[in-house]
Amino acid sequence: MNLDTITLIFGTGLFFIGITGVLIRRNAIVVLMCIELILNGVNLTFITFSHIHGNLAGQVAAIFVIVVAAAEAAVGLAIVIAVFRRHPSINIDEFNVLKW
């Protein structure tokens, strides 16, 4: 068990927990948080492999992931607010308009 193995397990675990959360939680904000977990898991994996290979490309990819995550969080939360304003609930299972 060296450092790389542990962080890879950490990353994979975060990915798994995040996906589970996205699939089973109803609260839209918690779903957004779970997406952050997924992205963190991916980032950790990127950086671990960057460490293993001694190549900075992984870190660069990670910083772009962070940028995208920031944008995603901002837009996602704005959507939550917009939805909440229209319909005072943020439970995802009350919205099935994608059907139409």
């Binding site: 962080t7 950490f10 975060l14 950790l44 950086i47 671990t48 960057s50 460490h51 870190q59």
Partner: peptide
């Protein structure tokens, strides 16, 4: 904790 692991992996800036 993820940030702490970044430090251990040599990615201080991240």
């Amino acid at each position: 904790t993820v940030a702490a692991n970044y430090v251990l992996l040599g990615a201080e800036f991240l």
